[in-house]
Design a protein around this nucleic acid. Structure first.
Lengths: 197, 197
DNA sequence: CGGTTACTTGACTAGCTTCAAGCCTTGTGG
DNA sequence: CCACAAGGCTTGAAGCTAGTCAAGTAACCG
């Protein structure tokens, strides 16, 4: 969802410069603010007991994140970290609720955003239970391709590590599986870069 | 979310008796109706290429389901099937949209429901990336316990197969893991029935 | 050009999956 | 009320394979 910047400012929103790697909030914390990306990119991930981390979503210019825990008043199930230097507006919870009340179209927009996210998570879920690594990676690539409307031959802008974190696999497994898929003509790898076919 | 029955009727909602095993909609179909459970239980699941089926959610009296694809106008990513004989009210999409417009509190309620579902799915994802079967099953059981507000000693109303489908494991693995957990006093099994501790 | 991050490869192993077979429980129809 | 069918549960044995660890190479960035 996106709320107009001047509305955010009017209601007390404050923009802040965030360095790459800094966190906006962490797993387990209590939500206090509404966040919206002005420039840059924020990654939401949850980490299991071990080092493994699962990417729950990536948010760019104009997108907000972390609203569900805020609305529910429940602890964050994930951590929000800047992927690169970013500018983020944040707004206190009560001010956010006021905007929702004062601008009904905001509520509709949020509803639509939430519907998108549920739909997205429902399909993501299928990736995680696929049997073989190849199934997981194929499904992931196909999903990404469709969502971004990519053509065949497009570059996949993810590192092996990121793909691993989104499919629940390990880096080495992703590498070995992609290599095999390349040999079988299911994807293309050139200069370590990955392309869909 | 729940919309009052008399409102649903006023807007043209029709209730229907559904036999156990019947489907309200299937994966890939185009959404046309809003659905709400009056009595009984409906299961939403998506099936991957193989036999495996993934339970996306279970809905009981007073709960609605399948709204995100309806709002987005996208094909259903899952199938809705009655777990038992049920009575379901269904309402045409345009009537549903009218209710949302005429009753702002409905919109707020739906927003809250959506937030719950996103939160639920985010935490469910963590189960799927846990390393060991025991971690997955423990997390699943704890999550279920908390969501349903169960006391220690409660019966878990799922088959091994269902637990397998929700954790991404195989039936035999679930059985063997539960057996070990039983021996270690982490759960209780009596007459093949599973209880939390 | 040096440091950091990403990628790659090999060897090894724990343990999940698979396959096959048999048992228990529940519900149903005669 | 009993018998039987169907579905769920359990077990064992064997093979595979994804994960792990370790080490080295290639790309990228300042």
């Amino acid at each position: 969802m996106q709320i107009e910047q001047n509305i955010l400012i009017t209601y007390g929103g404050i923009s802040k410069k965030i360095r790459k790697g800094e966190c906006l909030f962490s797993e387990g914390e209590s939500p206090q603010y509404y966040f919206q990306v002005i420039t840059g990119e924020v990654r939401l991930y949850s980490s299991s007991a071990t080092d493994k981390e699962l990417i729950q979503g990536t948010f760019k210019t104009g997108q907000s994140f972390g609203e569900p825990p805020l609305l529910l008043g429940r602890p964050y199930p994930s951590t929000a970290q800047a992927n690169k230097e970013s500018i983020i507006i944040r707004l206190r919870k009560d001010a956010f609720l006021s905007i929702l009340k004062d601008f009904p179209e905001t509520k509709s927009a949020l509803l639509h955003t939430f519907a998108e996210r549920i739909y997205h998570k429902a399909t993501t879920h299928q990736i995680l239970i696929a049997n073989t690594p190849e199934e997981k990676i194929s499904q992931f690539l196909t999903k990404y391709k469709n969502e971004e409307g990519l053509k065949n031959g497009s570059l996949i802008p993810f590192t092996r590590q990121q793909i691993a974190n989104m499919t629940g696999l390990r880096t080495e497994t992703v590498i070995r599986t992609l290599k095999r898929m390349h040999e079988e003509g299911k994807v293309k790898i050139k200069n370590h870069k990955l392309f869909i076919i």
